[in-house]
Design a protein around this nucleic acid. Structure first.
Length: 652
RNA sequence: GCGCCCGUAGCUCAGCUGGAUAGAGCGUUGGCCUCCGGAGCCAAAGGUCGCGCGUUCGAAUCGCGCCGGGCGUACCA
């Protein structure tokens, strides 16, 4: 709604410039003045016109402000600074429109299915904080897309036949010497058990590099479906995937389908892609040189760089990981001529199902996945090179449209601060001590497990809730503590820009004060409390009946006077900017802006809350006005937190 | 070597496609509950925006070159 207004104003300015000066102006960019007192919009274009019109920018801005006349929705124009054209909106009509928009903020549907792949954790150990960043970013991005009317399919790829699973199989079979039955009988947390085992296997390899032969042997057996390794690998990966879904489920992260590498293998996706790649000369066979005997793809060098070769098929005939990824990407766009079968893997509380790929049809009701119009792969920045290869694969095959619609949603890793390491009891080398952060390493078992962090957050918030809400039954307190823990964690993962490395620090992650999820939740709880108390004190305002007082105010024409206060107006403007913020987050893949915007609004609201005592306001129309503002902030924040996947407790 | 990213307050980070006096949180210091809940609010202190050129009416933002740090660059995934 804000955008529409701006566009109307821009059109009018454009008309005026051509009538009055007879010129076509450059791009009109609407900015926000540094202070509300200076106006609601600022146009710097007079600076650019100065040369053409041979007048000072300030003079131009003045002429326009004086001559343009009245424009719909605009209170007045003003020349400011060295030559800005500033605009003051008509606050009353603006506020009323905003209020209406908030009652139904969703945008109409758009056609085309968007596929978002995220999480994608190797199913051989517990999830850690790095995986949390991926899942929370991916899940939030999905929420943003859905709210803007897009159809979205969420895929979580499972590499169940890779080396990482093989390593754990090696650990169980050769180190622990356990059978499948014995492994199945393990009662302790399986993902945690494997976390330690995987680290142990890595050390075991280091002691004697020849032991890595076992990995190859196991890997081969898994691919071929041979006893005893294949069933063991299957058991491990399925059990770990369940653990991962459980972990992510705690944060409200859901998936539609789990495509597995085993099906990609057995349904011969790669063979299909391979023949396509050869047929269309996207890859070539190398006769001599260091890559002799390999099939490689040419990567056009960026800005004057030399072309590079990326090996897709090794000289021994086996395919690299990227090769399989190209096949998978082709399938995502429905370009492979092959597809999976599916069976139900699990069901969420809301009744929606999560499907997993399978070899055979499970019968009726099998959904159709893949064949998207746009694909986003949420993967950390370290995989940029491989993602570039995948996209080049599509392009080389002649699918340049699909290549253009393939997006690597990249983000920086979560690392551990040295302080965090010492808190975990991890000893660092002097060299590592001096670093700003240390990479998480599953191989070394170095990291913070996702569930441990969530547990700790829950424990801390429960302590607070027990203090503040002692009268509530335990179950209710647990529920609130859970919501706060999730709110804190999701916000923490979203507040940083994508390409900043998070040097994980417990003190910051566990904070509930300042720029945190709980601060946002608290602001909303406060606004709810106002209404609850209102209904207690003024029964005639109960439910929606306060809106009759609001309607009276709106008709009275007293609104304009009440909206003169800049603090209130700033809050209103910030709420009106929500759709822009969301749209910008989608196009720039930068979600932190949405998180920050929510914080800004919450801050403004808290300021307003402290400045005005709403319930004791004697003047009914003023009271109705303050309630309208409260309601606006509340709706805006609820909408934003919904997008961020953060629930709001009843009390806290 | 080459490519990508980062360098802004003591610490952690914002700063939109260049725009008006560089912001927030934490921490520090000092205030604020006869009042809708203090997970809150207010105030103060704290900055050569890594350095140097350049483009521009205007640069934290764009270009080039340095310095410091990180990550990629495998017949690993």
């Amino acid at each position: 709604m804000f955008r529409n207004r701006i566009e109307l104003i821009e059109t009018r300015i454009r008309e005026f410039l051509s009538e009055y000066y007879g010129i076509e102006p450059p791009e009109l960019i609407a900015e926000t003045p540094p202070q509300v007192e200076m106006g609601d919009l600022a146009f710097p274009f007079p600076f650019q016109l100065a040369k053409v019109l041979r007048k000072s920018p300030l003079l131009i801005a003045r002429e326009i402000a004086e001559q343009i006349g009245s424009v719909d929705g605009v209170e007045r124009f003003e020349a400011a600074g060295g030559g800005f054209l500033n605009i003051f909106l008509n606050r009353e009509s603006f506020f009323k429109d905003l209020y209406e928009w908030l009652s139904d903020p969703e945008t109409p549907g758009k056609s085309g299915k968007i596929i978002v792949e995220h999480t994608n954790i190797n199913p051989n150990k517990a999830a850690h904080i790095g995986h949390l960043r991926n899942a929370v970013l991916g899940d939030t991005f999905v929420r943003l897309l859905v709210s803007s009317g897009r159809e979205v399919e969420v895929q979580n790829y499972i590499d169940n036949t890779g080396v990482q699973v093989a390593d754990v199989v090696v650990g169980f079979h050769f180190i622990r010497k356990m059978s499948l039955a014995e492994v199945a009988a393990i009662e302790e947390r399986f993902d945690y058990y494997c976390w330690d085992l995987y680290a142990q296997v890595s050390e075991w390899y280091d002691e004697d590099p020849e032991r890595k032969e076992l990995r190859q042997q196991v890997l081969h057996a898994i691919e071929e479906g041979l006893e005893p390794f294949f069933p063991l690998a299957e058991h491990i990966s399925i059990r770990i995937v369940r653990a991962h879904l459980q972990t992510m489920g705690r944060l409200g992260v859901h998936y539609d389908v789990l495509p597995r590498e085993s099906e990609i293998l057995h349904l011969k996706f790669w063979e299909e892609a391979y023949s396509l790649l050869k047929e269309r000369r996207a890859i070539e066979f190398i006769e001599e040189g260091p890559h002799a005997g390999c099939w490689v793809m040419q990567l056009p060098g960026e800005n004057g760089q030399e072309d590079e070769e990326k090996i897709i098929v090794r000289s021994n005939g086996t395919v690299t990981y990227v090769g399989k990824d190209i096949a998978y990407q082709l399938w995502k766009f429905g370009l492979l001529g092959k597809t999976f079968h599916y069976s139900v893997f699990d069901e969420y509380e809301d009744g929606s199902k999560i499907w997993i790929t399978s070899m055979d049809s499970s019968g009726e009701g099998e959904p159709r996945f893949g064949a998207g119009d746009r694909v986003y792969n949420v993967i950390d920045v370290r995989q940029s090179y491989l993602q570039r290869v995948v996209v080049q694969g599509l392009r080389s095959l002649g699918y340049s449209d699909q290549a253009d619609r393939s997006t690597h949603f990249s983000y920086e890793m979560v690392a551990l601060s040295p302080r965090c390491c010492s808190e975990l009891g991890i000893e660092l080398s002097e060299e590592d001590q001096a670093r700003p952060y240390v990479e998480v390493s599953g191989r070394k078992g170095l990291g913070v497990k996702a569930d441990d962090l969530i547990d700790k957050l829950f424990e801390n918030s429960l302590k607070e809730v027990n203090q503040r809400q002692a009268d509530l039954p335990q179950e209710a307190r647990d529920q609130i503590a859970r919501q706060i823990a999730v709110g804190a964690l999701r916000y923490f993962m979203l507040k940083y820009t994508r390409n900043s490395v998070i040097a994980f620090d417990f003190a910051e992650a566990l904070s509930f004060e300042g720029e945190t999820g709980p601060y946002l939740q608290y602001s909303i709880v406060r606004s709810s409390n106002i209404f609850r108390k209102l209904f207690e004190r003024y029964p005639e305002w109960e439910g929606d009946s306060w809106k009759t007082f609001q309607a009276r105010l709106w008709d009275s024409g007293a609104m304009a006077d009440l909206l003169t206060e800049d603090e209130v107006w700033r809050l209103v403007l910030d709420i009106a900017r929500i759709p822009d913020t969301v749209e910008q987050a989608i196009t720039s893949l930068e979600i932190s802006g949405v998180a920050r915007h929510a914080f800004t609004i919450a801050q403004q609201f808290n300021l307003f809350y402290h400045k005005h005592h709403i319930l004791s306001e004697e003047d009914e129309s003023k009271r109705a006005f303050y309630l309208s503002v409260t309601d606006t902030a509340r709706q805006g924040l609820l909408h934003l937190l919904d997008l961020l996947g953060i629930e709001v407790p009843e009390r806290m």
